[in-house]
Design a protein around this nucleic acid. Structure first.
Length: 496
DNA sequence: TAGTTCACG
DNA sequence: ACGTACGTGAACTAC
């Protein structure tokens, strides 16, 4: 019950206070003071002191009473208690420093990029309208798009999947790609291109400059320690954990994140942390050996799957092996794997079977994790962080979904715990050595720092040491480091 | 506000 | 027969 209360991000202080403290008196809601999110909303600083004072006092008082009510419940679970006091609480001031540091944004660059994207979007719109008798419509509207594609243009809709709740035609990028292969039509590529550009423009290029804090001239995200059920952080307003990197055009946006004058970014990312955690938890001999020998893990997996020496593995085999092993830690089925690797369901099943045959520790891990999850009602990370999963004991598709979550959670959670340990240690080491370098961002397996040029060598050394040594597993933790003047132009730094 | 889509690890 | 890969946050449409 406690964990549920603490982990339910939708439960605010007020709900907790009523639930845990059984308050008889209604508390003032923050919305009564500042209004709902929107046009007429004011900031708390504008609330008259006569109203702000009792609200703030109640807020602090309720928090203190909640500590008294919840701490004993927390203490009943030794490991969860330790995660709270030794990990989450020490992490909090580190996150505050990161949020307050913010990150520089090159506003003129973003505006220029926005203008270019806007021009290109206009051209795409015009081209798309030519397929609708030059009549304008809202390309972002799935309803209007469906009508054009499947009615006016007569593209065959058979085989097009339906959406979950509304059962309309699903119009995702992968659906368009399949459609294009079966019934090629020039409008399809235009739509894909339009979608990609408008996503980048509206979500990042247009939105980010509005979030520059006028006081600091920088963008300040907010991290949530309760954002993810697995113990990962989440980032919001803006989300700086999903800045584009996968396409060249998306990557351009990263060029707009710039290091302060006299400074340079340093990015340190854990190499394959989830698979290393998988090797540690499963103790699978083949997996452990591959990491101990410093092999390219996906090439090594491909070698096992296809029975070909690692040196003879081509790019496609490596890609397939990567998809298969990630798929398995996500609980994928042959049905789900097949389209992702462009193979038949039979072939997909063969690869899954082969993976389990070559890495028998994986099957044991899945079986024992599910058994323990059903028996205890939760699964846990290496450090004892729990994810409650009552639906493991239900039936039907909800159970299947819970099983996939249960397979993945210990791995993702353990990686998240290790990263949090590293962040605390890196922050401590930077401060202890009186360095001016600051930790700015965390993106799950990666930390981004801003350092004066003169500090680069020392910071790189320190960061690697703390991250790689955050926790000893039965396989090494490896960290790759890059640096550069902006978030796009990053170049590897030679091994330390 | 629900639903869909898509950006990231 | 059923549904089909984990974890997020944001923009957008339609109601």
């Amino acid at each position: 019950m406690l964990a549920a209360a603490l982990l339910d991000k939708k439960k605010g202080l007020k709900d907790l206070a009523f639930y845990e403290l059984k308050l008889p008196e209604p508390m003032t809601d923050i919305e009564e003071l500042i209004g709902k999110r929107g046009k007429n909303q004011i900031v708390f600083a504008d609330v008259p002191i006569e109203q702000a004072t009792p609200y703030a006092a109640a807020d602090a008082d309720m928090t203190m009473r909640l500590v008294a009510a919840l701490a004993p419940q927390l203490a009943e679970q030794a490991k969860v208690n330790e995660i709270f006091h030794k990990l989450e609480m020490p992490l909090l001031p580190v996150l505050v420093r990161m949020e307050q540091a913010g990150i520089g944004l090159d506003e003129p660059f973003m505006r220029e990029l926005g203008k270019r994207m806007g021009d290109q979007l206009e051209r795409l719109e015009d081209e798309i309208y030519t397929f609708n008798d030059r009549v304008k419509f809202n390309i972002n509207s799935g309803d209007q798009l469906s009508d054009l594609l499947f009615v006016k243009l007569g593209i065959p809709a058979d085989g097009v999947p339906r959406t979950d709740k509304t059962k309309k035609y699903s119009l995702t990028a992968s659906v368009f790609e399949i459609l294009q292969a079966k019934n090629p039509h020039p409008i399809i590529d235009l739509i894909l291109r339009y979608r990609q550009l408008s996503k980048l423009k509206s979500t990042y290029v247009d939105a980010l400059p509005d979030l520059v804090n006028p006081e600091t001239g920088r963008v300040h995200t907010t991290y949530s320690q309760l954002g993810a059920a697995t113990g990962r952080l989440s980032s919001n307003d803006p989300n700086l954990q999903n800045i584009p990197t996968r396409t060249d055009e998306g990557r351009e946006i990263r060029r707009g994140f710039v290091a302060a004058p006299g400074h340079i970014f340093i990015a340190a990312d854990y190499s394959q942390i989830e698979l290393r955690v998988l090797a540690h938890i499963t103790q699978d001999a083949n997996l452990v050996e591959a990491f101990l020998e410093g092999q390219d893990i996906h090439a090594a997996t491909a070698s096992q799957l296809f029975g070909v020496p690692t040196s003879k593995i081509d790019k496609n085999q490596r890609r397939v092996a990567k998809t298969v092993i990630f798929g398995v830690i996500y609980g994928i089925s042959a049905f789900g794997l097949a389209p992702r690797i462009g193979a038949s369901r039979t072939e997909a099943q063969r690869l899954i079977d082969e993976l389990f045959a070559r890495f028998p520790g994986l099957r044991d891990y899945i079986d024992s994790t599910l058994a323990q999850g059903r028996q205890q009602g939760y699964v846990h990370s290496l450090f004892g962080r729990r994810r409650y999963m009552p639906e493991l004991s239900s039936g039907g598709p909800r159970r299947a979904a819970a099983e996939r979550e249960a397979i993945n959670a210990p791995i993702q959670s353990t990686a998240a715990d290790i990263m949090k340990i590293a962040m605390i240690r890196v922050d401590e080491a930077l401060r202890q050595r009186k360095l001016a370098a600051r930790m700015l961002l965390q993106v799950h397996d990666e930390l981004i720092f801003e350092a004066p040029h003169a500090e680069v060598d020392e910071v790189v050394q320190l960061v690697c040491e703390q991250m790689e040594g955050a926790h000893k597993l039965n396989v090494p933790l490896k960290v790759d480091v890059e640096s550069g003047p902006n978030w796009e132009e990053m170049h590897e730094i030679a091994a330390h």
